[in-house]
Amino acid sequence: MITPDGAEIYIADQKDGLILWQDLQEPHGGFSTIRIGQETGSGWTQGEPSRLVFLPEKSYRRAQIVVTDVKFNSIVFIDQLTKRVVRRISDVGFAPRTIVVTPDGRKAYIGSEQPIPTGSIAILDLNHPIPHLEDKRISVPSPEGMAIFGRRLYVATQSGGGNDPVFIVDTVSDKVKSWIPGFAVGCNIAIVPPYGKKIYVARGNYPLSSIGEEKQSPLGVIQIGSWPRYQEKVSQPIPLAFNVPLVIVTKDGKTALVANGDKITAIDTRNDHVVGRSINLSSEADGFAVSKDRVYVWLPNDKPNPRLFTFDLRSAL
């Protein structure tokens, strides 16, 4: 995750229970670390940080980084200025793997994938100095990826017997309004700005077809109609290399970047065509972000050590 001002990058290192962070204005300064975990009866026990989200500054709080901790079924708040853990909220669900914050910073949704095949989305009220969980939970099967546009929360899911839907939740009533079937295996979701007229759904290792010996997986595409009805229309999926776990869209809405296999592929959002050549990676990406035409890719399984791979979007594709 990159902060909105493009100054810092934060990475969840689930294996070692750490948040890595770096000042992007000092790229040769290296990473600093923040431990995620808890004191238990046997001493310090490391957590399993999964997803991160930025919480903007309000009159009653400083800017914070919020992290889901899969091991302790909790979320952790890190003060951006001091880089210290300032709060932990437990019992958000079983295996929380995804989190999003509404554009006004007043509410967060935490998706927990288990117990399979149920899962749930917890609602966190952030409109107070001390955030608290609401009693209500939104029931969806194994939510793995979420994205918000306006008052609509889109949720990519799994455990739907090969027909996993994208659920649409109204963020005012916090009720499921509708769903779009046929998006197995939903891992991640991205909305094309600035008007939110298109959604891309990363569908993991779902097999699409094969070209010779090469397996392929699809990137799902959903067109969104205009206000007030916002009718959804499913478009032809985009075939990519096998395993499509991650998708993001540039701030200008012109390009979608997709992790597929050991590649990063760019998609022109106007016509859903692949742009230029794919960027080959030395191992599969576990996360990536883009800021000011610079793409940052986290490669935790790179040998001999995990590393952050970067390239310029304008010249590389």
Score class of each variant (00 low, 15 high):
Met1Ile: 09
Ile2Arg: 08
Ile2Leu: 00
Pro4Thr: 02
Ala7Ser: 07
Ile11Asn: 00
Ala12Pro: 04
Lys15Ala: 13
Asp16Tyr: 07
Leu20Trp: 11
Leu24Asp: 04
Gly29Thr: 02
Gly30His: 08
Thr33Cys: 02
Arg35Asp: 15
Ile36Glu: 04
Gly37Lys: 05
Gly43Met: 10
Gly43Arg: 09
Thr45Trp: 00
Gly47Ser: 11
Glu48Leu: 15
Val53His: 00
Leu55Arg: 08
Pro56Asn: 06
Lys58Pro: 02
Arg61Ala: 12
Gln64Met: 10
Asn73His: 15
Ser74Lys: 09
Phe77Pro: 04
Asp79Ala: 09
Arg84Asn: 14
Val86Trp: 06
Arg88Lys: 15
Arg88Gly: 02
Ser90Leu: 14
Thr102Lys: 00
Tyr109Ile: 05
Pro115Glu: 15
Ile116Trp: 14
Ile116Lys: 14
Gly119Ser: 12
Leu124Met: 13
Asn127His: 13
Ile138Gln: 12
Pro141Lys: 14
Ala147Arg: 00
Ile148Ser: 02
Phe149Glu: 03
Arg151His: 14
Val155Trp: 07
Gly160Lys: 10
Asn163Leu: 14
Ser173Ile: 06
Ser173Thr: 15
Ser173Leu: 12
Ser173Asn: 02
Lys175Asp: 13
Val176Trp: 13
Lys177Trp: 05
Ile180Asn: 12
Gly182Val: 11
Val185Asn: 12
Val185Glu: 12
Asn188Val: 09
Ala190Asn: 05
Val192Gln: 01
Pro193Tyr: 04
Tyr195Leu: 12
Lys198Ile: 05
Ala202His: 02
Pro207Gly: 04
Ser210Tyr: 14
Glu214Arg: 15
Val221Met: 09
Ile222Phe: 07
Tyr230Ile: 01
Gln231Pro: 00
Glu232Asp: 07
Lys233Asp: 05
Leu240Ile: 10
Leu240Gly: 11
Phe242Gly: 00
Pro245Phe: 08
Ile248His: 04
Thr250Asp: 11
Gly253Met: 01
Thr255Tyr: 01
Val258Asn: 04
Ala259Gln: 10
Asn260Gln: 08
Lys263Asp: 13
Thr265Lys: 05
Asp268Val: 04
Asn271Asp: 15
Asp272Met: 12
Val275Lys: 11
Ile279Asp: 03
Ser282Glu: 14
Ser282Asn: 07
Glu284Gly: 10
Tyr296Lys: 08
Val297Ile: 12
Pro300Asp: 12
Asn301Leu: 06
Asn301Glu: 11
Arg307Leu: 05
Arg307Pro: 08
Arg307Trp: 02
Leu308Trp: 07
Asp312Arg: 03
Ala316Leu: 03
Leu317Phe: 09
